[in-house]
Amino acid sequence: MKPMNPLIRPLVAGGIALAALTAAAAEAPSGWSYKEIADALHAIMESDRTVYTRNVVNRLQNEEKVIKASEHWKDDKALPLPAQMFRYGAEMVAEKNAGFTYSLLSLWPVNKQNAAKTAVEKEGLEAVAKSGQPYYKEETLGGKKYYTAVYPDKAVAKACIACHNDHKDTPRRDFKMGDVMGGVVLRIPMK
């Protein structure tokens, strides 16, 4: 073999290093457990949800009284509810076939479609309501296996309880600040 041109040598070496690096980067997530991935995704969801509820809904509706939040925000020219904000995001993620799904459920749902449906959902919502801690379990739905995580969803602002306790369709009117009002259910398909 002809000796390599000294100018090309560092380029090739750099290329190999870069390739190795990208491979390492691509491999990294496989070192993550399902629990860690679920926790990471939930950290984003919970933070965004809290920011929206505190800095937008609670501030503008309850503190400054500038604009209301309403289920029919288009017709009422109002802010979308925190739960709607959450669901629209979840729907968009589903449309993108992102590989995981999530929803906001409760044992005391305003919208009956948000009641627990699967056995794991029921068990998980009951567990997080009692302990305030996340709950993890594998479940099989439609012939596919999922890693399912349930995270408590707490009343972090006055707006949460004011609205829920007064809502026409709520089955429960005694929520207090800090109560677990429901749970975020996150599912990752298992390989």
Binding site: E91, A94, E95, T101, K117, G142, V185, R187
Partner: peptide
């Protein structure tokens, strides 16, 4: 504001209904 968007039926929690 389609009340039954596709995402309702691709959600695994509705797999039994979607079937």
């Amino acid at each position: 504001d389609d009340k039954h968007p596709k995402s309702k039926f691709t959600d695994p929690r509705n797999a039994d209904r979607a079937a």
